[in-house]
Design a protein around this nucleic acid. Structure first.
Lengths: 219, 219
DNA sequence: TAGCGTTCCTAATGATCATTCGAAATTAGC
DNA sequence: GCTAATTTCGAATGATCATTAGGAACGCTA
């Protein structure tokens, strides 16, 4: 019978499949997509290379699942973090919760999430296309969070929320290239991120102009 | 005679070598390192795959040069941008100049710079090691810029400059994954980046605490 | 136009992998 | 313990590439 027809129908099968995906996520996040071989994954999962094909149709198939799980997990983590706050919480509280959740999945727990961030760009078009749907949904979630912050007045009206979102997610995602857990705990990092974004780094003297066009006042 | 002994000693040779590097930079930035073959590069450069080896010892050798040029160019662009400002310029002016230069090299001109950002993580250890030296120097340059801004009082004293630098460069570098030139010109993008970083997105009401420890006041 | 250094071509070579497949081994149901 | 289904093995297969090497074409100089 083909792998497709029976895949993961039995309990042991499901567990082994997880083991393979775990191994793949770790390997992808460490060595990139082209840099990890089916044999690498198989050996970490305790089997021979050929056996992988009992569970997956192709290497791309594994990649797809790892990438999708990666987004699904950060998304869940962010939702959970915000959802477990009192509904009356200030935007700044929610933001910090979401940032902490995202950074945690990216830097501490998630081989899947970090694999996604590191490897997405190297993925074949078809794989990217599918994963982009999940990414878009996650991005929209952040968009709503920021939008809410703007409605409540905690974000100035003239801030471009799209750019803000991309900056925020970008600076977080980039952390995957430099973060070392022995230098600073995640919550502290998250706090600093939020502080920069919310308060800025300059002295807060000048009021924000309400028209969106004019450049900085000429000193 | 070996490629090494005579490489680029003649004028034509130097030009052709440039052509190869240009083709490689573009291909790397589009398809990643493993995703581009020697033949891809050669064809774009108007020659056969084997001929590449008259100019370079290996694919890694090409990668090394592309990566190094990538950093060298943003570095130069940033230095030039800041250097051509009046020496008395405010920190915010310098910052915007540097951000504009960085984003321009990354998103508009530099196949080399964008190749570096996209492909560095996939490079073999030896190549990374060498390029990291240049990256460190560039990072230090930004560190000095920020440090100067803090000394002059335009950045609050209690801001962690290391985190700020990593956030700033991270959000810029990440733009390589989403920026589309038809949506917003670089200078406008740079201005928005700087506005977020300098002023933050929140209403500037609360004074910054001077002790660095305490968390946000409890509402 | 002969000679020499240069640039480039072309056809190997050899290594690395993803993927396949038939058979062996293991497990579960009875 | 027998049988059938499930899981794994292990040895091909074939494709893709980086890299090599010997020779051909090109261009310059005398």
């Amino acid at each position: 019978m083909s792998a497709r027809s029976r895949r993961a129908s039995h309990p042991k099968s499901a567990i082994t499949k997880q083991r393979i995906l775990d191994a793949a996520a770790r390997a992808f996040s460490l060595n990139g997509y082209a840099g990890t071989t089916i044999n690498d994954i198989a050996m970490t999962a305790g089997m021979q290379g050929g056996s992988i094909y009992y569970y997956f149709e192709s290497k791309d198939d594994i990649l797809q699942e790892v990438l999708d799980v990666g987004i699904t997990r950060v998304f869940s983590a962010a939702r959970l973090a915000i959802g477990s706050l009192p509904a009356s919480s200030a935007f700044s509280e929610k933001l910090e919760a979401a940032v902490t959740a995202h950074l945690t999945m990216l830097l501490q727990q998630g081989d899947y999430t970090s694999a996604n961030i590191r490897v997405f760009e190297q993925a074949p078009p078809a794989v990217k296309r599918q994963n982009r749907k999940l990414r878009a949904a996650y991005g929209e979630y952040w968009g709503q969070l920021l939008s809410e912050g703007q409605r409540s007045g905690e974000i100035r009206k003239n801030v471009d929320l799209t750019i803000l979102r991309l900056m925020l997610l970008g600076s977080m995602n980039w952390a995957v290239t430099w973060y070392r857990s022995d230098r600073m705990p995640i919550p502290e990092l998250a706090r600093k991120f939020c502080e920069v974004v919310l308060k800025g780094v300059g002295l807060s003297d000048d009021q924000p102009e309400s028209s969106s066009r004019g450049r900085r006042a000429r000193s």
